[in-house]
Design a protein around this nucleic acid. Structure first.
Lengths: 251, 251
DNA sequence: GACTTTTGTTCGTATATCGCACAATATGAA
DNA sequence: TTCATATTGTGCGATATACGAACAAAAGTC
């Protein structure tokens, strides 16, 4: 790609949108400038553009995103058949298990939730379609990484900041690679409080008719209710069942 | 806002993202150009920018969005507490009713789904967070419009293309205004196959502690299973209960 | 209230981007 | 195949935009 085939104003604008987040629902021009590393004048122009187009509100001091911004992600969610196909099965799975069930795909070093059926139970982590978690310490991440060629998985791990979210988090690349081999062999991954204390989960790959891994399915549960060692006994059969049902339906 | 405070390259790029949709998961440069009305060279630069940034894939012929694009909508969903708060109650509501339950907010002339609990039942309309429906013929739309001052509701209707999706669709602005008054009085809206034949729904406003309407909740059902006339009897009590439970929890 | 610090806005200029026109390539029909 | 059509890639002049600095306006601090 030639230098002139890149629209930097567009790239800057996208960066500004991403500056908003859970802890930053409202941003001033200066804050957005700090978070993006862009010049205040540039950020101001991007924010005013968003506001002019109805993607953001501006009260003279703070900017905040409007629901119109969902059109952008929706362009992906509606264009990709996977989320719509798996959603009802996740709802069924979640109801049967009495736990939250999710589907995700890999994006770089992270898993991205594309569909989710949550349970009323309060979780400290609030997940929804579009949410992201580091792949190395999430059950679906392990499943998705294990489906890649080893060199590719290793490459992704090398780009990941392997930090210990809890004392149980595996942060050694070689140990993780060994874990991925185990996951590949047994066909599922179990995470025991590696992302957050009190939270464990089990995931299986979601394959299409040709056997290609297109996503991962999981069930997450509070460790207080279900020990990690019980996860496979309790939930693997229903995950496998959902996996089998969906196999001919995706892609 | 001054002319020079608008970054048209950014606005054009956003338009290109929105060109993707359910029927257009993959777009060539020429197709994207047609759909956006932008010059091919411009569209090409925007698409190559998206591809360079990892928001799109390019196989040399077609562009398609990647899950990374969800970061943009996620910036809103995670910044706005409402979706996360209502989701578990929607799940509960959906399970109890045996029907899909959703929450939405108003964006211009449309309602935007911000959370949803779907049922396995196959619906011809596939809805998910970020989905949009015209407000005038959706139950949540009626509720949200009825919460606005009459002049504002009328103004929105005047900007809407009031088209008859089915023979039952109300398309007369004055008739709709009368309907809104009725909805305001009775505290709920019922739609009987105005959006699509075979689909009916009932919605109530979701208020915060100060009594401001911040969203709408609904239950949708196939007309074959539940007649529109039965909706209020069967589902209004549980909708009201959820409404009351959520009232102190939002905003 | 005076001072400092932070934030928002404006401006001139160097640079990047747009849209056009044309070239190159792919696609399809006869 | 050949021609016709559609699609994509590229160079260029005109125009729009980003940058940085300077200024203006708030917001804290003492």
């Amino acid at each position: 790609m030639r230098e002139t085939d890149f629209v930097s104003g567009f790239a800057r604008g996208l960066k500004v949108i991403e500056a908003f987040g859970e802890a930053q629902p409202r941003l001033s021009i200066a804050e957005a400038s700090k978070r993006t590393g862009l010049d205040r004048a540039t950020v101001r122009r991007s924010l005013l553009t968003l506001s002019e187009l109805g993607y953001a509100d501006y009260d003279g001091k703070f900017f905040s995103l409007t629901p119109k911004i969902l059109r952008l992600g929706h362009a992906y969610l509606s264009a990709t058949p996977l989320p719509a196909i798996v959603q009802p099965y996740l709802d069924q799975l979640s109801e049967k298990a009495g736990q939250s069930a999710s589907a995700s795909v890999l994006d770089g070093t992270e898993v991205v939730y594309v569909a989710r059926a949550s349970q009323r139970r309060v979780m400290s982590i609030n997940l929804m379609p579009g949410s992201r978690l580091p792949a190395y310490c999430a059950s679906m991440g392990r499943v998705l990484l294990s489906a890649l060629p080893e060199t590719e998985a290793r490459e992704i791990l090398s780009r990941t900041e392997l930090k210990a979210n809890t004392p149980r988090t595996k942060t050694d690349a070689e140990e993780l690679m060994a874990e991925l081999r185990k996951v590949r062999e047994q066909g599922y991954a179990v995470i025991d409080q590696e992302l957050e204390l009190g939270l464990c989960s089990i995931a299986v790959p979601l394959m299409n008719a040709r056997g290609q891994v297109v996503a991962a399915l999981n069930i997450g549960a509070p460790a207080a209710h279900v020990a990690a060692s019980e996860l496979a006994d309790r939930y693997l059969p229903m995950l496998k069942e959902t996996q089998a049902t969906l196999r001919p339906l995706v892609q």
